[in-house]
Computed example of a mutant assay.
Amino acid sequence: MSEQNPFGRDYWEERYAAPGLAWSGDPNPVLVTEAAELTPGTALDIGSGEGGDAFWLATLGWNITGVDISTNALEKARTRAESLDLAAAARIQWQQHDLTAWAPPAQSFDLVSAQFMHLPDPSRSTLFAALAAAVAPGGTLLIVGHDVSREVDAHQSHRAALMFTIDDVLAAIDGEDLHVEAAESRERAQVAAHTESGHLRDIVVRATRPRSQAGESR
């Protein structure tokens, strides 16, 4: 793994090649909080990993496109979803893309979710702008990341340059005609053993596209 590109495809293929799950398999807490009351439609899960978020959304009736750079992650996600609930699994399309070279179709998703998608700039800003553009009229954009406005713990300090602030997100999505409904830092419990503190803080940006933009060309 290169310190300059710790999130490249080789790194993630190797990580997801190991037996078992790299993560908990549970949906990210902020997604659960923000999406639980949304009306199911089409969703884009960016950096879908082993599919915890995509599967949870599918159980609620969403039709999801899960995108990840790792084919190993996508295969794990597909296999796990099918083992848990075939009906939910059938609502998920798994796609392999390098997010530094791919953009989703414009105004195509009722929910666009990027949970802890940490990339170096300018790739990060380009991706966030593309995700904002992918939100359909009436749809929601949800971007969540580690809060680096405070002191970063030892586990994350060597990757601090890859993280982002609220202002970074807002600058990237500016001009996409979205209404920002939340732009804040939130505390959550940390269950991993690598931190001394029992809590972490997350950057949370939630924005929506007005329904009046339906049918407008970009």
Rank of each mutant, 00 (worst) to 15 (best):
A133I: 03
E184R: 09
A81I: 05
A193Q: 13
S197D: 15
S197W: 09
E196G: 07
A77D: 04
G215Q: 03
R80I: 10
S185K: 06
T165I: 06
A77G: 11
W56H: 10
L200A: 05
V169M: 12
D85T: 06
A183T: 01
D147Y: 10
E216K: 15
V144A: 02
G175I: 00
W94S: 03
F55P: 05
D98P: 13
A18T: 14
F55M: 04
A193G: 11
Y16P: 10
Q107G: 14
A192F: 15
A136N: 07
Q4N: 12
Q93G: 11
T195A: 10
N5F: 09
W94D: 05
G66I: 04
I46F: 00
A89I: 07
L99Y: 02
R218H: 14
L57D: 02
R159V: 15
S70L: 05
H158R: 14
D45I: 00
S157W: 03
R15Y: 02
T208M: 12
G20D: 05
L142I: 09
W102M: 08
L86M: 09
E196W: 11
T39Q: 12
A58K: 09
S185D: 02
D26I: 06
T100A: 14
S48D: 00
T33D: 15
A101L: 08
P40R: 07
E196H: 15
A89M: 08
E151N: 08
Y16C: 11
A192N: 14
V148D: 13
P210T: 00
D10H: 01
N72I: 03
P29I: 10
Q115D: 07
V204M: 08
S125F: 06
Q107I: 08
Q115K: 08
Q96D: 09
Q115P: 03
A43R: 07
S24R: 08
L127T: 05
D202A: 02
D98K: 07
T100D: 01
A132Q: 00
D167Y: 03
L178F: 01
A58W: 01
H199A: 14
W62Y: 13
R80G: 12
T140D: 11
K76N: 05
G138P: 04
V67P: 05
T42Y: 02
S2Y: 10
S2D: 14
P29T: 01
A133P: 02
L84K: 04
R201T: 06
G145K: 05
S125E: 03
V180F: 12
M1Q: 12
D174F: 08
G25P: 03
R186K: 14
P105V: 03
H199P: 07
L38K: 06
S197I: 10
S197Q: 13
A132N: 00
R78W: 11
R218P: 14
W62F: 13
T100C: 01
G66F: 07
D202W: 05
L178I: 01
Q213C: 02
Q213S: 07
A192P: 13
S157R: 15
S24C: 09
Q93A: 15
P137L: 07
W62G: 10
S157H: 08
G198N: 13
R159N: 15
D10S: 08
D147T: 00
G198V: 11
E216S: 08
L38W: 00
R150P: 09
D26V: 02
E3Y: 13
D174W: 10
G20Q: 07
A136E: 00
M1F: 13
F7Y: 04
I166E: 02
A103T: 06
L99W: 03
G8H: 00
L141G: 14
T33K: 15
D68P: 11
D98T: 08
A161F: 12
A161W: 14
K76H: 09
